[in-house]
């Protein structure tokens, strides 16, 4: 659990972050979203003390982050950034081993961990362990960057626009991978982005920032249903908020018993995608099947319309 209390940062007379209070649950993904200059990166960088706060404090599992030297604190916290920041003179293996080496892990443990991460991130060790970053594609570089951040099994992972440099298709894949990784390792993730779609897709809770303040920190559905500030409504998108709401629920979650004639959709598909499919096919309902192909009911247009209504 990460507790942020009255955190603030001032440069001269200019307040970049003002009185931020957040509690981020263990094993959850918190996304900080805001326009450029909203102070979201500064807030993130104060958690691992790359920027020292002007006021307030950060507690991780109840312990004040100022209790130990900053560089030791950072070795316990994963850190992944936009444009990956891989060391160009070191191989993929050496890059991933950075923090374990700083922590003086035994060589065998480091080697085993690097191999495990390469496999988790779908990078064939024989091909990629000894490659240099410039020999990888953008998506692969980004994966190595996240693998490096997770190398020392941190309980907390900070990510600053980690997918900002990727094209849309690779980006969607990277987001899916991140969700899978988070489920696998149970890491608490704090992620900064300017992309509201990304925030909604990844965040268990989303903090909307503007001018150094957190306007609201809530679940995506609550941000849509009960915006605390007109700015939140504007940033989450007034015109397509019903569709955004639909995108937060999967077909499997609302499937009613019984199969129907017509198209078939996956249980993991979002209601937004199901609606789109039904519109396209001109159908009234779709059967829902699980990943293994077994049927788990159906979803009708009427049910979709109910779910898209303002809660």
């Amino acid at each position: 659990m990460i507790t942020i209390e009255h955190l603030a940062k001032q440069y001269g007379t200019k307040a970049v972050v003002e009185d931020v209070n957040l509690t981020i649950e263990r094993n959850s993904i918190a996304v900080i979203v805001g326009t450029s200059g909203s102070g979201k990166s500064t807030l993130l960088r104060m958690i691992n003390r790359l920027i020292e706060p002007s006021a307030g404090r950060v507690l991780i599992e109840g312990a004040d982050t100022r209790e130990e030297p900053a560089h030791l604190l950072r070795r316990r916290i994963g850190y992944a950034i936009q444009g990956h920041g891989l060391f160009p003179h070191r191989t993929v293996e050496e890059n991933i081993a950075t923090v374990p080496r700083l922590l003086k892990w035994p060589a065998a443990r480091i080697a085993a961990r690097v191999r495990e991460l390469l496999e988790v991130f779908q990078l064939e060790p024989a091909t990629y362990a000894h490659a240099f970053p410039h020999q990888l594609s953008g998506g692969q570089q980004q994966r190595v960057g996240v693998a490096r951040a997770l190398a020392a099994e941190p309980a907390v992972l900070l990510m600053d626009e980690p997918f900002g440099a990727l094209d849309p298709i690779i980006r969607a894949k990277a987001q899916e991978d991140l969700l899978a990784i988070q489920r696998r390792y149970g890491t608490t993730i704090v992620l900064v982005t300017h992309d509201m779609d990304e925030a909604f897709r990844l965040g268990d809770r989303v903090a909307v920032m503007s001018n150094g303040r957190v306007l609201q920190f809530d679940t995506p559905a609550a941000l849509l249903a009960h915006p605390a500030d007109p700015l939140v409504t504007r940033m989450t998108g007034q015109t397509d908020r019903a569709l955004r709401l639909l995108s937060l629920t999967t077909a499997g979650e609302i499937a009613a018993p019984g199969a129907v004639p017509g198209p078939t959709v996956s249980a993991a598909a979002s209601l937004r995608d199901v609606l789109s499919e039904l519109l396209w096919r001109g159908a009234e309902a779709a059967s829902v099947t699980r990943e293994d192909g077994t049927p788990c009911g159906h979803v009708s247009v009427a049910a979709l319309l109910r779910h898209g209504r303002s809660p």
Binding site: R45, N48, L50, H71, L72, L73, R74, R75, R76, Y79, A80, I81, Q82, G83, H84, G85, L86, F87, P88, H89, T98, V99, L102, G145, R148, A149, L158
Partner: peptide, 25 residues
């Protein structure tokens, strides 16, 4: 690369380690 230096610091290298292992290298 600014990103490499930022990542190095963010992962807990000391100033000296960043200077010697990343920047000067």
């Amino acid at each position: 690369s600014r990103a490499a230096v930022d990542a190095a610091r963010g992962m807990g290298m000391t100033h000296w380690q960043v200077l010697r292992g990343i920047e000067l290298r």
